[in-house]
Amino acid sequence: MSMLKLTVSALTIAAASATAAAARDQIRIVGSSTVFPYTQAVAEEFSNQTGAPSPIVESTGTGGGMQIFCAGIGEQHPDITGASRAMKASEFELCQQNGVTDISEAMIGYDGLSLAVSNANDFAWDLTLEEIFLALAAEVPVDGEWVANPYRQWSEINENLPATEILVMGPPPTSGTRDAFVELAMHAGCKTLDYVEQGGFDSAWINENCSRMRTDGPFVEAGENDNLIVQRLQADPNAMGIFGYSFLYENLDTLKGVNIGGVEPDLDTIADFSYPIARPLYFYVKNAHRGVIPNLQEFVEEYMSDEALAAGGYLSERGLVALSDEDRAALQDAVLSGASFQPE
Rank of each mutant, 00 (worst) to 15 (best):
S2M: 02
L4S: 13
L4I: 09
L11C: 12
T12L: 14
I13A: 00
A22N: 12
A23G: 10
I27N: 00
I29G: 05
Y38H: 15
T39W: 00
E45H: 15
S47E: 11
A52D: 02
A52M: 02
P55R: 04
P55Y: 03
G61D: 04
G65Y: 00
G65S: 11
M66S: 01
I68S: 07
C70T: 01
I73F: 00
E75S: 15
A83I: 01
R85H: 13
R85D: 13
A86G: 08
K88H: 14
K88Y: 15
E91I: 01
F92N: 02
C95I: 05
Q96R: 13
N98M: 05
G99T: 04
V100A: 03
T101C: 00
T101L: 00
S104L: 08
E105I: 09
M107Y: 12
D111F: 10
L113V: 07
S114K: 01
L115I: 13
A116D: 01
N119T: 07
D126G: 06
T128Q: 02
L129S: 03
E130T: 14
E130N: 07
L134N: 08
A135W: 09
V140P: 00
G144D: 01
G144N: 02
Y151S: 03
Y151R: 05
W154K: 07
E159C: 01
P162T: 10
P162A: 10
I166R: 02
L167S: 13
V168T: 06
V168W: 10
P172A: 12
T174S: 14
S175T: 12
A180T: 15
F181S: 05
E183T: 13
L184V: 07
M186I: 10
G189L: 09
G189E: 09
G189W: 04
C190V: 03
K191V: 10
T192H: 07
L193Y: 00
E197S: 15
F201H: 12
A204R: 07
I206L: 07
C210A: 09
M213Y: 11
T215Q: 10
D216C: 07
G217Q: 09
F219L: 08
G223E: 03
E224C: 07
Q231F: 09
R232E: 15
L233M: 13
A235R: 05
P237I: 13
A239Q: 08
G241H: 06
I242R: 01
Y245G: 04
Y245E: 11
Y245L: 04
S246I: 06
S246H: 10
L248G: 08
L248Q: 12
Y249A: 10
Y249P: 03
Y249I: 08
L252W: 03
K256D: 12
I260Y: 10
E264H: 15
D266K: 06
L267C: 06
A271M: 10
F273G: 08
S274A: 15
A278Q: 06
Y284H: 08
Y284V: 03
A288F: 03
R290N: 14
G291W: 02
V292A: 03
L296W: 08
E301R: 02
E302M: 09
A308C: 13
A311H: 06
G312P: 02
G313R: 12
Y314G: 05
S316I: 05
E317P: 02
R318M: 11
G319S: 02
L320Q: 07
A322F: 08
L323Q: 07
S324D: 06
E326T: 09
A330C: 01
A334C: 08
L336R: 09
Q342E: 10
